[in-house]
Design a binder for these strands. Structure first.
Lengths: 237, 237
DNA sequence: ACGATAAATATGTTTATACATAAAAGCGCA
DNA sequence: TGCGCTTTTATGTATAAACATATTTATCGT
């Protein structure tokens, strides 16, 4: 390996991946080019084919390489630019910034999902759901307003939980593993209720996050989160 | 989640991963529980330890399991909820919806980055950059307004490109592999310029995407993308 | 009890080998 | 030329074996 190791104990497969990445950045291998096959690279790097395979799979998962059986491995022409971000537990996010966390429920009722929610979640219109509206505060300032629909039948024990006392976000994270999830970002102008609960002027631009999760029993929860003005969500590739 | 249907040609490692996932969803193994070690699971599933290892690594990458040497594998108490999305090439995104794509440059000049951009990108204040403002249209309607700063020295050949003719987004995707990237979402009210170029009322809530890429030569480009009102960005876990 | 040290152990990684499989390349025949 | 078949080949996957490494657990000396 002709390579500066980030650490003395970096796995070989990662070193190989870094070397390949460098060659692509240096334009030794250019977009669309076919790179040497695994057997050749194994000789080049003094490694087993399995190790090279692991390294190349890594880069393919990142979108930097495209691999096809028999056809070989190519540098992606149009690298699918993937970014991942982790959905934080709100309380941790707030406390991490050194602020005091608080949570207040503004509404908790049983009812049926409005059409928009029913469509998004796929629940029947006559399925009784829990409707929860709550605000998360950092140092007394509104941080997020969440408008959530919950399906008490999806998770055993949920019916017994009092979401006035217990933070829904955290209870779900701990107790409701999901099979499928959906997430979307958008922007909306604050309506009257948003404005009131976030203590801002109506019409302010808000970052809106919609998140829905399902398990084998169907819908678990669907939530609309309105972030306080100026909030930024970061992602890393 | 790269889920394939369980079938005859599904790799064994994925079948094992699915089985483990199912056991977690069925609460056979609950949040925080330690699950059997690789050797045991190998016997259970009739596979080699390496295969079980691959399956468990997959689930750990997803955030469903937590693994530590010697300490064993546990079901994550607080599964880091990761979501990934791919940054699309705008033209493809528009054409995929069956709309006619158009691109128009509203400004192209040389200059120095304003403070906000310099701070975000880490370029020196006296580094000459290219400033490009352009709008992407779908069927004649503004789709995105991009306000972009480019570093002509980062990529050989960039100086010769006429970004009045060539779509910057696409040229970069094809010619400028990056080493590091940063991305952020936020919401802003449309200012006068946004409003004019997107042909909307000032003050409308806009979804804003900031994206910066670097390679070993430093900054490649930093762009602020203002999406047309109502635009939704979807992510999948 | 306590702290240092040694043993045990679960995961992490690499290797060699084998076979599976998709797709390109070659070939024969109309 | 074009179609269908066979061969070749690069990647995909699984396996057993071995060693590395981080921790926990056990042990011993004080």
């Amino acid at each position: 390996m002709t390579e500066r190791a980030p650490g003395p104990t970096t796995p070989k497969a990662q070193l190989i991946a870094e070397d390949v990445r460098r060659r692509i950045l240096d334009r030794e291998w250019r977009q669309g080019d076919r790179i040497p096959d695994e057997a050749e690279l194994a000789v080049t790097f003094g490694a087993a084919r399995a190790t090279v395979n692991k390294a190349l799979q890594l880069l393919a998962d990142e979108g930097l390489l495209e691999r096809r059986r028999r056809a070989g491995t190519r540098v992606a022409v149009d690298p699918a630019r993937k970014a991942t971000f982790t959905i934080p537990v709100v309380r941790e996010q707030i406390e991490q910034q050194g602020m005091a966390y608080a949570y207040r429920v503004f509404g908790l009722s049983q009812g049926f999902a409005p059409e928009a929610v029913a469509e998004r979640t796929g629940v029947a219109a006559d399925m009784p759901l829990l409707h929860l509206q709550a605000v998360h505060y950092g140092d007394g300032t509104p941080f997020q307003f969440e408008d959530r629909w919950l399906n008490p039948r999806a998770v055993p024990g949920m019916e017994a939980v009092d979401f006035r006392q217990v933070n829904a976000n955290e209870w779900l994270v701990r107790n409701a593993p999901y099979l499928r999830a959906d997430m979307a970002f958008s922007a909306e102008s604050a309506d009257v209720r948003d404005a009131q609960l976030l203590e801002i002027a109506a019409g302010t631009a808000l970052l809106i996050l919609h998140r829905t999760t399902w398990n084998d029993a169907g819908l678990i929860t669907s939530v609309r989160i309105a972030c306080r003005p100026g909030h930024v969500i970061r992602a890393t590739p």
